[in-house]
Structure formats: C-alpha cells, structure tokens
Computed example of a mutant assay.
Amino acid sequence: MRGTTVPPGTPCPIPRPDEVPLHRLEVAGPGAPPFAAGSFDAVGPLSRSARPHRHTFYEIAYVTAGSGAHVVDLARRPLAPPQLVVLRPGQVHHWEQDRRLDGTLVLFTEDFLVDHPGDRDLLRRLAARSRLRPAAGEDERVGRLMAELVAEYRQRAPAYESVLRSLLHVLVVRVSRLARDPGPGATAGATAEGRPAAVADRFGRLVASREAVTWTVRECAERLGVTPGYLTQAVRAATGRSPGRLLIEARTRRAQRLLAHTELSVRQVAARTGFSDPAYFSRFFRRETGHSPGTFRKHHSRVHLSLEGGSGRA
C-alpha cells in the first residue's frame, strides 16, 4: 500500500517529538513485491536496532543465536534461541543488549497477503505472544522453510512472487500451530492493554469485514460506540496510522481479492467496493497499488468463483 514501502537507501522520516520512528520496507522498485528476506546482516543495521521504532510491515524473525532481550510494546522478553518473533505493523519494539544476534528475517506488507487474507488474523494473534519456541525437530523444519524463502527471494526465478506467497502462507500456518498450546512465558496480553487498545483491536476486526470497506471513519466510530476523535487517537496509538488510511487499505485489499479471485468485471468490482464511477475506481486503484485494475488482474488472476457466488459481467 502507499506509504508502506520505499526505494533502497531512503532515510526514515524524522518523527515529531511525541512519535516513535516509523520504518518502511525497502523494495527494489515500483514493480518489486513488498517483500524481503535474509539474515540480520543482509537486511541491514536497522534489523538489530536498539532504539524503539515501529514498522509499516510485518516481520517474522527466526532467532537462532544471541542473548539479551527483545522489547515489544514495553514488554521485555529475554532471548532464548531458537525462537520465533512475530511483529505486526505499528508495534513498538527494539533489541536490548543483544550479543551475537543471528537468524533469518522475513518482511512483508499487508497487501502481500492478498492470496491468503486469513493469514492477517493468524499474524495478529501470533504478534500477541511473548515467545514462540519450536520443539526439537520442528526447529529444523522452520529453519528450512525460512531458508527456502530467502533463496527464492534472492534468485527471483520466473513466477517467484507466487512461490514466495505460497511459502509464506505455509510458514504462517506452521508457526500458528506452535502457538496453540501456551508454553512457559507465553502470555496473550503482550500488546498494549486498556480501552484504547481494545477499541483499536475491534476496529481492526471491523475493517476486515466486507461491509466496512464502504464505511466512513464516523460510521465505524458509531458502530464501536466512540467518537471519531477517540477512534483516531486509539488507532493511531496502536498502529501509527489513521483509521481513514486503514479503511482505504482495506478497500484496496478487497478490490485486489475480487480482481484476483473472481470473474467480476471492473465495473462490478468497483460497485462492490463502494464506487459508483468505474473510472474513479480505476484512478483510486492505480494510486494505491501502482497498477490499473486490468494489469493487476492479468498478473494475479486465480479465479475462485465461490468468493462472490457468480461470474456475470456488467
């Protein structure tokens, strides 16, 4: 989505005095997928940052060596490799007193999950866990899968983006299995607590619904029983972005899924995402994704009619 990725070497914007620095995902160019994978060294010095910061992207870190602690939303979590760390966009984190920190990172924005939108909910739950440690034997499987993602990302063979999406889906599902049974030190309340966090969480679930993509911030606030101002403060504190921006991104994801997985015409997709004017929808879609609806469909089409229960064209 717009504003979540930047070209390599782009400096982080200077935050306001009351804001935590926001890191965006570096990608090779306009046509490159919003994804990166590699070791801590390969990703760069910010991957080990000791200064609290936020991301516009998800991060899955498989820590295989090192000591110290990982601090997420003020909760200090001692490192005990091998272990997995999952971060969602907006979480404040840093590495504290790390010694020889090593492992593999997988970084991706929310729109990279267009083929498997259910993974967003799994990732949100995983990000709330204080520790994820693979059992003996399972650590090797996770390591091999992470290595496959890195190799595919580096080689960029034909159709590599589709392979990356599939491998990432497998990784998310396998990691979610590790979180089914609470282990020592695993707590569900690792994210910020209190009513603002609860409101932000409810808003996140709300915008994941089909109907919400056409709602305004005011309409969402009314359904949550809060004022638009309170909703804006709560969501910005939790994610670093405004509810309006998140609604736009949800609208774009919905359009991407319909274009990729149904035979609905562009006019029909526009109507189902709240646009009465297909031309305006096309301008909106190009602004948010960098591609026209037709171009996006050409490269991502995987028709699955059950999403809408019909295939007629307007």
Rank of each mutant, 00 (worst) to 15 (best):
P33F: 08
A61P: 07
G29W: 05
H53M: 10
V86D: 09
R54W: 09
P52R: 05
V71R: 14
V85E: 01
A36S: 15
A50V: 10
V63P: 00
H55I: 06
E19S: 07
F40T: 08
H53G: 14
P17K: 07
P30N: 12
V86F: 09
P30W: 10
A36I: 07
P89M: 03
P17I: 09
P78D: 12
H70K: 04
S39P: 12
L87T: 04
R16M: 11
E59Q: 15
F40R: 04
E26Y: 03
P81G: 02
Y58K: 07
R77A: 08
E96P: 04
D41W: 08
F57L: 06
R16V: 00
R76M: 05
L74A: 15
P21T: 10
E19Y: 04
A80V: 09
H55Q: 12
T56R: 09
Q91P: 01
L22S: 10
A32H: 05
E19G: 07
S67Y: 01
H70P: 00
V86G: 09
P81D: 02
P78H: 08
D18M: 06
H70V: 10
G68P: 08
P45S: 14
S47C: 10
W95Q: 14
A37S: 13
P15G: 13
A65F: 00
A61Q: 11
P33T: 05
P34E: 14
G44S: 14
G90T: 06
V71F: 05
H23I: 12
A80L: 11
R77K: 12
R88V: 12
G38H: 11
R77L: 14
A75K: 10
V72W: 02
E26G: 09
L74I: 02
R16T: 09
P33G: 06
A42D: 14
P82S: 00
R16G: 15
P82K: 02
G31C: 11
D73V: 05
W95T: 11
Y62Q: 08
H93V: 01
L79C: 01
A50I: 01
A75Q: 13
A69I: 04
V43S: 08
G44V: 13
E96K: 14
G68R: 08
R24W: 03
P82V: 00
H53T: 10
P81R: 01
I60C: 13
L46K: 04
V43Y: 11
V20H: 03
R88S: 15
T56V: 07
V63T: 06
P52V: 03
Q91N: 03
G31H: 12
H94V: 09
P34I: 01
P82M: 00
P34C: 03
V72P: 02
L79Y: 01
P89N: 05
F40K: 07
S39G: 15
P82C: 02
S39L: 11
P52N: 04
R51D: 15
L22P: 06
V20N: 01
A50T: 13
G44Q: 11
L79W: 03
P81C: 02
A69K: 07
E26A: 15
L84Y: 03
P17D: 13
T56N: 06
P82T: 01
H94P: 09
R24M: 11
A32D: 14
P15R: 09
H94Q: 13
G68W: 02
A69L: 02
F57S: 05
P30L: 08
V85Q: 03
P33D: 09
R51N: 13
Y62R: 12
